[in-house]
Design a protein around this nucleic acid. Structure first.
Lengths: 174, 174
DNA sequence: GCAACTGATTGCAAAATGCAATCAGTTGCA
DNA sequence: TGCAACTGATTGCATTTTGCAATCAGTTGC
């Protein structure tokens, strides 16, 4: 790991951490998709990350202190990747990024509904989500009860998928 | 310009726009540094961007709708680059990114004071700054009076530089 | 035993990066 | 008029990074 930086500017240093096309995708899948294993990240990514890139980025994110790795008790070869507090606090930035992308880029409805719900939920929802992530990844005491934020977002996604399928069925060749 | 995307996910699409080590640096220098010309961006960047990379990124950001180019009346060969609304609305994300980096990365005091002031100013300061950018780059009516946000940030930067110089002079070899 | 699965690693071609040199046109100044 | 400095780039080239396919050794379930 090289420790020399281009400058001490916080924006530059942030870019040195995830200024590439894959690091934030991996964190997105861990945060919003709940992925914890190598294979989940490899096969679950809709963007289709290559295994060597995934291995490299996981190693890199660990060296940077964004992830930790632990043995899975259920399988001697299985590794569980966990988010650190450093990565969990990145969640609001992902929410902002999603909100911005939803306005300015050609997003698909299914994949942007989470960003929309997250934007509408605002800071309270983000705080709740981060607490849930801390519970899941850092083992902190159980957060507030009720449906998890991730489940809420997932339900929104599935509702859109179901609606679009039904629309396609009722009004063919729109 | 390739128009095929890896996915319609807003976070992915955002990364396809500025998921590299230079695009956001250029936007940072335009937004916070007030840089408008090729040479200003080339020589003003503390990270030392190469001229071919700068030319490539400016072209790319224009194709993506983040920047526009216009002739400078004062010099027939001079081009003025302007931020579009799309780029201006990225400003709060840069503020968040700076705030995150300030907490988790080895930032230098001089270069992170802007991020600190911007964080303390919060949404009202960001709104004011975006209005100033719209006036500067899009020619919208003059925003609120008083010192500009950029001037406030710059003053903070210079205060830190002056203080550190004075400290170094009064207490050598601390 | 053996196929499927675990987290990776290797080889290789293609693309991106970074550096230095260079370009044609413009401007300011003598 | 001449000429140096400056304008926004472009070119060539070596190095690095990326992305894809194939492969690896160990583990598990059956």
């Amino acid at each position: 790991m090289h420790t020399d930086h281009r400058s001490g500017c916080p924006i530059n240093l942030s870019l040195e951490v995830f200024g590439d096309r894959w690091s934030l995708i991996i964190l997105r899948d861990m945060i919003f998709g709940g992925k914890r294993h190598f294979r989940e990240l490899l096969n679950g990514s809709i963007e289709g990350i290559a295994s060597n890139i995934l291995a490299d980025r996981l190693k890199r994110l660990m060296q940077l202190g964004m992830l930790t790795k632990a043995d899975d008790p259920s399988h001697k070869q299985k590794a569980i990747y966990s988010l650190t507090e450093m990565a969990i606090t990145l969640m609001p930035i992902l929410a902002h990024l999603g909100a911005w992308g939803r306005v300015w880029l050609p997003v698909s409805e299914e994949l942007s509904i989470r960003a929309e719900l997250l934007e509408k939920g605002g800071q309270p929802m983000w705080d709740k989500f981060m607490d849930e992530l801390r519970h899941e990844h850092l083992g902190t005491p159980s957060p507030a009860s009720g449906p998890t934020v991730r489940a809420t977002l997932q339900a929104g996604y599935e509702a859109v998928v179901a609606r679009k399928a039904s629309e396609a069925g009722c009004e063919p060749a729109a």
